[in-house]
Design a protein around this nucleic acid. Structure first.
Lengths: 211, 211
DNA sequence: AGCTACCTACACAGATCTGTGTAGGCAAGA
DNA sequence: TCTTGCCTACACAGATCTGTGTAGGTAGCT
């Protein structure tokens, strides 16, 4: 969905202002992400977003027709592709737990944005619910693919278990305000992997996580 | 915190209306619970609660001085003591996963009320955050006690892992709209228990969950 | 210079929310 | 009967929110 085009009415010009429109859109989404994620979607008004960016509310509504559209764009922007990795499947899986732990410790994690949106909006028919479902499903399939590569027994079920562990760790970090829950989940993941016949990378629990 | 007393100003009367006040308070909290939990705290106004009960907003504010107080009372009411059980520790633990699965299948579960409150209010200093933390900690300690009884290895760490699994299952049920995630978490719990030297009750995964 | 597209500032409609103020009804007990 | 306490109905203040309407400024392109 390219922005800045629907305004040009097919006049044939090579979209001279398209990049400017894209930049503005990016600025809006950056600030929206920060505010919606940190303070909550319902707690942040459109006025606040516009004021924080330094633009008028009118301009914001020129880029997004409604707050709902802004919410959807916010979640779609969070739905970034998983970067490919050269490392072993088991390391990639266990790294997922380390990553959320590090993010929380760096005060960059306030729960899962998709889960938060589902909770805040409380409307299963909202597009946000579909996006959240898509995100969870993609991660589960990613886990499953890695488990197949690692020749784990019952990769399908185990992928779901590992996904549950990851979401549980995020929730517990939020409520307990303790980044250590990520390591606890990681340890459980290690046990589950071992039970599925997958050997851990090096040491079973501890791993150097400098910075 | 007994209600209906602070109104009586110590005149010596044996609280003639105390029971009526208690009943009203209970009615308010029942409806509040249903609305806050199903539709969300921020989405439900005080007007809506009063109208649903069939009382005036003024009366509601006679029992609870603010919406925040109502939120706190709502969460405190959810913080019920864990009923003691005669059954084996392992069965009690695994039953926790079955229970959330059954509740979700019966459409009586829309995430964890404590986690939802933390997410919706987005304020770590709110009393709701403390109550939520207390709830999570109590359940972890309950798991730990049961694990000690079951002579599990490393009961302390395992209790945290099982708690993460339970919260993860609740989150995933909410987002995926699939009660089956409870059984997935249960299976992971069984694996973790087995790895800790604890034997499952009867069959390792399947369990008769009629009704 | 003139045109066009985008931007700002600002007001405003209309809805919603929390919390209070007031006047009066009604039932129980002295 | 009279008082007291609780309830209702209703209006309202004041804040907030989404979304729109309008007038005018400004920068780039022809």
């Amino acid at each position: 969905m390219p922005a800045g085009q629907e305004k040009c009415k097919q006049v044939g010009v090579p979209l001279p202002r398209a990049s400017a429109g894209e930049a503005m859109r990016a600025r809006i989404l950056e600030t929206t992400d920060r505010l919606f994620y940190r303070r909550g979607i319902r707690a942040v008004g459109v006025d606040t977003v516009a004021a924080e960016i330094g633009i008028s509310k009118r301009t914001l509504y020129n880029y997004f027709p409604s707050k709902d559209a802004l919410v959807v764009a916010y979640l779609e922007r969070r739905f970034t592709p998983i970067p490919a990795s050269e490392r072993s499947p088991v390391v990639q899986i266990l790294d997922a737990y380390d990553r959320v732990g590090r993010l929380f410790a760096a005060d960059a994690l306030r729960g899962c944005p998709f889960v938060n949106a589902v909770t805040e909006l409380a409307d299963p028919t909202h597009d946000a619910a579909k996006i959240a479902l898509g995100f969870k499903e993609r991660r589960r399939l990613w886990f499953r693919e890695l488990l197949v590569q690692a020749k784990a027994k019952d990769a399908d079920s185990l992928a779901g278990q590992l996904a549950i562990l990851l979401d549980g760790a995020i929730v517990q970090m939020l409520v307990r305000n303790d980044a250590g829950m990520a390591a606890v989940a990681r340890k459980a993941a290690t046990t589950l992997l071992a039970a599925a016949g997958v050997k851990p990378a090096s040491a079973p629990t501890r791993r150097r996580a400098k910075a």
